[in-house]
């Protein structure tokens, strides 16, 4: 991935969840639920916006209410601003995807998935 100094670049992070499982969306209705979060460490590229897909509202047998979730394959898009003063050359963006997944019967513990994006900064 190449990124020009001073520009804004869009990075699509494809996420894949095994069939039968769901994760809470970034906006679960219940405050006790753990939302999907994507966070990026500050560096030569700074995240200016993280955009999640539209959640789906699904009914599970363990809940009376519809739950706001993501299932299957989806993408989270992040816009990064490249520092105009950054030195040209290779750089890395480090991020964390925090999620909490369940299926129809049980839930796994909240998990942090580390993500590293390699970028070549060019003038």
């Amino acid at each position: 991935m190449k990124a020009k100094l001073g520009s804004t670049v869009e990075v699509r992070l494809p996420l894949e969840l095994r069939q039968g499982f769901h994760v809470n969306s970034n906006t679960p209705a219940d405050k006790t639920l753990i939302p999907l979060k994507v966070t990026w460490k500050e560096g030569l590229l700074g995240a200016v916006e993280v955009v999640f897909p539209k959640p789906v509202m699904e009914k599970y047998k363990f809940s009376k209410d519809l739950l706001s979730v993501f299932t299957g394959n989806f993408e989270v898009v992040t816009k990064f601003k490249v520092a105009p003063t950054a030195p040209p050359g290779p750089a890395a963006i480090n991020g964390v995807v925090r999620y909490q997944a369940c299926n129809d019967n049980g839930c796994q513990f909240p998990t942090n998935l580390n993500v590293v994006i390699q970028v070549m900064l060019v003038r």
């Binding site: 869009e10 699509r12 494809p14 996420l15 998935l113």
Partner: peptide, 12 residues
């Protein structure tokens, strides 16, 4: 078993 993975991101 479930797995949730983040394949290589791509820039647009």
């Amino acid at each position: 078993f479930a797995f949730f993975r983040a394949p290589s991101p791509r820039a647009e």
